[in-house]
Design a protein around this nucleic acid. Sequence first.
DNA 1: CCTCTATATCGTTGATCTACGATTTACGAT
DNA 2: ATCGTAAATCGTAGATCAACGATATAGAGG
Lengths: 108, 108
Amino acid sequence: MAKKSNNKSCDSTPVKLKADPTAEEFARLAWAIAHPARVQIVRLLIGREACVCGEIVDCLPLAQSTVSQHLKILKESGLIQGEVDGPKVCYCINPKQLQRLKSLVANL
Amino acid sequence: MAKKSNNKSCDSTPVKLKADPTAEEFARLAWAIAHPARVQIVRLLIGREACVCGEIVDCLPLAQSTVSQHLKILKESGLIQGEVDGPKVCYCINPKQLQRLKSLVANL
DNA sequence: CCTCTATATCGTTGATCTACGATTTACGAT
DNA sequence: ATCGTAAATCGTAGATCAACGATATAGAGG
C-alpha cells in the first residue's frame, strides 16, 4: 500500500485505532463505578468484608429496587459478588477484579 | 430478638449516607473516562504530550463532531486541556487531574 | 400449608448518551 | 474581502440509564 501523502498517523499507528479490547474493558469497569451510589456501595463493601443487601439498602437514600439494580450492574462488572445466605444475599468485593481496575488506572 | 427498630447503621454511620461529595467527584471522573473512545483519547494524549484535534479525529473511527463531543466531556472533567493554536486546537493531559483520578482509585 | 421477610424482576417514565450530518465560528492565507 | 481549513456547536434520532412502585420469587418458621 502506498504511504499516505500527508502523514496523519498518530504515534506509530498507521491507520485508525480499531476497537481496542483493553480500552473496552477499561471503559466497562470505569463505567460500573461511574455513579455515586455505586462508588458508595463499593467503598462500603471494601470496608466491611461482606454486607447483606438489606444493610446496603438502608445505607443509601434510594429505593430497594434501585439499589438492587446498582448491585446487579456491579455484579455484572465482576467488581462484587453475591452469595445467597438463606433468605438473604451477602455481597462482597471481588478483590481480583478490583485489582484489575486499579491496575488499569495506575498504568494509564 | 426485637427488631432493630432504628439501628440500621452500616459501619459507624448512624443514618443514610448523604450525597457524598467524594463519591460524586469519583463518579464524575470515572464517568468521564467510561467510554472506549475517551479511554483511547486519554491514552493517546498521555503518550504524546500534546496532540492537535485533527490527529485525534484521524485516530478514531468516529466523525469529527463525535470526537469533538468526547473531547468536550474530557475537558469538562478536567482530565484534558485544550489550547488554541492558530486555527487548530492542541490538546494535552492535565496531569493534576489524572493524578487525582489515580489517587481516588488507588485509595479505594 | 400459609405467612413473613428479603431480594430480584417487571414496567414505566423522564433524562441522558452517542452518533451523525449540517451549520457556524475562528483564524490564516491569498 | 474572500477563501479554505480546523474545530465547535446545532439539531435530531435511537439507545441506554436511573429512578420508582408494583409484583414475583425464594427460603424460614409457624
